[in-house]
Design a protein around this nucleic acid. Structure first.
Length: 411
RNA sequence: GCGGGUGUCGCCAAGUGGUUAAGGCCCCGGAUUGUGGUUCCGGUAUUCGUGGGUUCGAUCCCCACCACCCGCCCCA
């Protein structure tokens, strides 16, 4: 039996890697132009970080974590977990390195693998990659706009212009509570008719009921008195103002968005602004980007109270939406019957920062040229005549035109 | 975790309970021992996801497992 890649993981081969490199480069441009610095945190963290950070009531923590006990019977045995998302780790690093000493806002971006033990399907793997940003120390609505803008800018730079942003506000500590209680109150009589998941959500995280796709549950949300509660603004004045201002910014930036009162999101740490960017063409795994504000998280993980906001995009899902990038061709393929000369020439040209390859297996001239035509823009012919008379024959492989060059620096 | 579908070469695929498992692309070699992308010729699966079972005999029938796909759940 040969060994295969683990379920839900895959190899990124050079062919596909071209597209990945491109995405990463676009992200780097867009984010660094906007003042984000790259941050890389370890792929595993103390399990407790996610339990506390992501939240005990989330599916991610309850059933999707890759958790290991290391240290065995040792007294120092500890539980570690492969990160299922990156926000908790970045917050941990922010606190650990006192990054609040930098004058706020502190802005970070990342491109990194994540791990969730889920049933794989299209657009969903056990090891997948997220590209995203986190920003600390700014509570202003303009910060929200800036974050959403950078998400949109990245998507645009990838050629994805038709995705719409869904937007909602969950309110702050105070009004979120009122809202939650009001929902529970009005739903309570119908609870027996709801699905098992919602019965559990009712206790643990009632707002999550709203994005249940179960028909019976949806019908309950359609009921007049329930709808009234959902649509009634429980949001406090501060939160409302925050949201209204954000919208003004988005309008002035001509960013398309749709307000979706049912948008809740699955991670516990969110408050106020939450948003999602979806694509029609991804089947059921339609979310390309998700994010929001998490003003309480830094404090909850032991830092000083610090407002924060961020988002993450699924790189594999982005890949599915954009056209494949062709790998760049070599500048030169050296066609030669003299390997010793070819190798020296290749070295020289590579030092001149040219992309160069050559044959060192003694293949026939015509085979070398054939190879050249597949992978390079020019064939650099270095045969006995050339070596003897000290020149190079340079053949343009798309036009067939061939010229003699005596000085290699003039290539 | 639940429901459904699929599984023949790197890729796309035909195929049948019975001696050697079509074809195309890609790849390799030759025609063309210093001029490619066209053409022509030739080569590449002891094997049909894996393991059992039924059978004189199974790629094709049955069972289990695995992987992938679609939906649910969840999320990026």
């Amino acid at each position: 039996m040969t060994i295969k890649a683990q379920r839900g993981t895959k190899d990124i081969l050079p062919e596909e890697s071209t597209t990945w490199q491109w995405i990463r480069k676009q992200a780097q441009n867009v984010f660094q132009n906007a003042g984000f610095g790259e941050i890389s945190t370890p792929i595993f963290e103390a399990t407790e970080l996610f339990n506390r950070g992501v939240g005990d009531s989330t599916d991610i923590v309850n059933k999707e974590m890759y958790t290991f006990c290391v240290g065995g019977a040792d007294k120092n045995a500890s539980s570690i977990t492969l990160r299922p998302e990156n926000t908790a780790g970045v917050v941990r690093a922010y606190i650990e390195h006192n990054l609040n000493r930098i004058s706020p806002p502190q802005k970070f971006w990342y491109f990194a693998p994540m791990f969730r033990y889920e049933r794989p399907q299209a657009g969903r793997q056990r090891q997948f990659h997220q590209v995203g940003v986190e920003m600390f120390g700014a509570s202003e609505p303009a910060a929200d706009a800036e974050i959403i803008l950078s998400a949109v800018e990245l998507l645009n730079s990838l050629g994805l212009n038709n995705l719409s942003v869904e937007l909602n506000t969950l309110g702050c500590k105070n009004c979120k509570n009122d809202y939650r209680e009001a929902i529970k109150e009005v739903i309570k009589p119908y609870l027996p008719d709801m699905c098992d998941d919602c019965k559990m959500r009712f206790e643990k995280n009632p707002l999550r009921m709203l994005d249940c796709k179960n028909e019976a549950c949806q019908k309950i949300f359609e009921k007049e008195e329930v709808k009234k509660v959902i649509l009634k603004d429980y949001i406090c004045n501060d939160c409302k103002e925050h949201f209204d201002e954000l919208i003004k910014y988005l309008d002035s930036l001509n960013i398309n968005y749709k307000i979706n009162k049912m948008l809740v999101r699955g991670l516990d740490y969110y408050n106020r602004t939450v948003f999602e960017i979806k694509s029609e063409s991804l089947g059921s795994q339609s979310a390309v980007c998700g994010g929001g504000r998490y003003d309480g998280l830094v404090e909850m993980l032991g830092g000083s109270p610090t407002p924060a906001i961020g988002f993450a995009m699924g790189v594999e899902r982005l890949c599915a939406l954009i056209d494949k990038k062709e790998p760049e061709k070599l500048d030169y393929y050296i066609v030669s019957t003299n390997t010793a000369e070819a190798i020296k020439l290749a070295r020289k040209l590579r030092k001149m920062n040219k992309k160069v390859d050559y044959d060192f297996q003694g293949k026939k001239f015509s085979k070398q040229l054939e190879k050249a035509s597949k992978i390079a823009n020019f064939a650099l012919i270095l045969g006995d005549d050339e070596i003897e008379q000290k020149f190079y024959s340079v053949k343009n492989l798309s036009t067939g035109e061939q010229v003699k060059v005596s000085d290699i620096n003039k290539l």
